[in-house]
Structures are given as structure tokens and as C-alpha cells.
Design a protein around this nucleic acid. Structure first.
Lengths: 108, 108
DNA sequence: ATGAAAGTTTCTAAATATAGAAACTATATT
DNA sequence: AATATAGTTTCTATATTTAGAAACTTTCAT
């Protein structure tokens, strides 16, 4: 997998952007640009919110803790299937959207 | 890849849910549950909005038209890398979020 | 400082995705 | 109906991901 150095934000940094509103955080409504990097961090963050160790999450997913570690550190580019399996085990919903940019020019 | 039969909506069906607001559609703000199925349909829909054939998109991504066809029909579970490559070629931003469900019970 | 628990890395094997090429099918257009 | 264009499927090869197991390292509590 080819990787590129990009400015990253820690999850907590990103989550700090949330606006507290009578108890419920809007945090989970915050949108992230899709990347394996952020996805891995989201898995870790969700696992921690569930108070699970990598081994426990592994058991829920049906894999070794080593797999969870690899996913969280985005050691490689996971398949959609794998991502879904993990979030399902965490009882988390993952939603997305696509937005076309304005600057597209179709060349002949 | 294991698949499951689920009730699906066509992209246009889904997009019909948008609320028109002075010219600009809110359509692109609509959120979809992550699945290879929907992802494939989004690629197709975005490609069509760009007025590209599968062959042309293939050229932009750097693959044969057959690959684009496979992705759009979700013949398999793509990797995040592949998904990103395609949306990048389409000059489209893909964002996501994760929401923890309430009904999680950690068993001992 | 020691020990236990949690997380990471490395090795190997197996499964799956990616890819091109070519044949095939479907869709339009005239 | 014939042709061109667009999209799909099949075949084969290669690359990559997934996975377990075990060794290793880090972190944390005492």
C-alpha cells in the first residue's frame, strides 16, 4: 500500500470540535474525510468507548487481537467487508456521503 | 465475499429524498449506510453525473473498463484504497461518520 | 522494580482483490 | 436490421489482505 504524509488530527483533537448540547454530544455527527488512517483511529476510538481490549474486540469479530491492532494502525488498506465486520461487532453505524467537486473538467 | 439479500433503494430513489433549496440540492448531504452495494451505486451515479463512460473513468483511474464495471456492480468487496482512487479520479469527496448504538452490552 | 495485561510485530499460509485481455451481451442510433 | 458504443463476464496471473501463532514491547498497577 502506498502511503502519503498528511497532516493528521488525533481523534480527541477532532472530537474536541463537537458542540456539547444538553448532555448529548454532537460529536458523532461530525464528518471525517474517508481514509484508512482515520478509519483505523475511529475503530480504536469506538473500541475504547466500548471499554474493550483489542483481544475482546477480536473475540467479538472472530479474529486474533493482532488483526485488530493492524486495523487500528492502518497497517494496510482494509476491505469494506472487514471494516463492516468490525463496526458491526462494536454495534456502530457507519454512514457516508459523496460530494462532487465543482472543478471537474472533462478533457476530450 | 458473502452477501446477504437486503431491501435496496435505487440511487435515484434515494436521491429523491433530497429537499430542493434555492437551486442547490441538498442531495449530496444525504447520508448512506456504508455497504459495498451502495458504494458501487454511488460510483456509478457519480460517473454518470460526470458524463463519463466506464472506459473513460477507467482511463482516469488507470484501469480497464472491466474494473469499473466490477466495482459498480460490487462484484467483490473493494479495498479502501481502490474506493479512494476512484472517487479521486471523479473529483469527489467522500466523508463518513460513525455512531455508536445504545444497545451495547459487554458480556463478561 | 516486578509482574500482569495490553498492544505490536514478524512469520507463514490461505483467501480474496486487482488487473488485463478478450469474448460476449446490451443499448442506441441510423 | 446493421453498426457502433457501452457495459459485462470469463479467464488467468499477480498483488494484497486476512488470519493465526508466537515472540516481542509497551503500559500500568502494585
Amino acid at each position: 500500500m502506498k502511503t502519503k504524509e498528511v497532516k493528521t488530527y488525533s481523534l480527541s483533537e477532532m472530537k474536541d470540535k463537537y458542540i456539547g448540547k444538553d448532555g448529548t454530544t454532537v460529536r458523532d455527527e461530525y464528518e471525517y474525510e474517508l481514509s484508512m488512517d482515520v478509519l483505523g483511529k475511529m475503530i480504536k476510538s469506538a473500541r475504547q468507548e466500548r471499554k474493550l481490549t483489542q483481544e475482546e474486540l477480536g473475540r467479538l469479530v472472530g479474529v486474533q487481537k493482532a488483526q485488530i491492532s493492524k486495523l487500528e494502525s492502518s497497517a494496510n488498506s482494509a476491505t469494506i467487508d472487514t471494516i463492516l465486520k468490525v463496526f458491526k461487532a462494536l454495534k456502530a453505524d457507519i454512514n457516508f456521503n459523496v460530494k462532487l467537486e465543482d472543478n471537474f473538467i472533462k478533457l476530450a
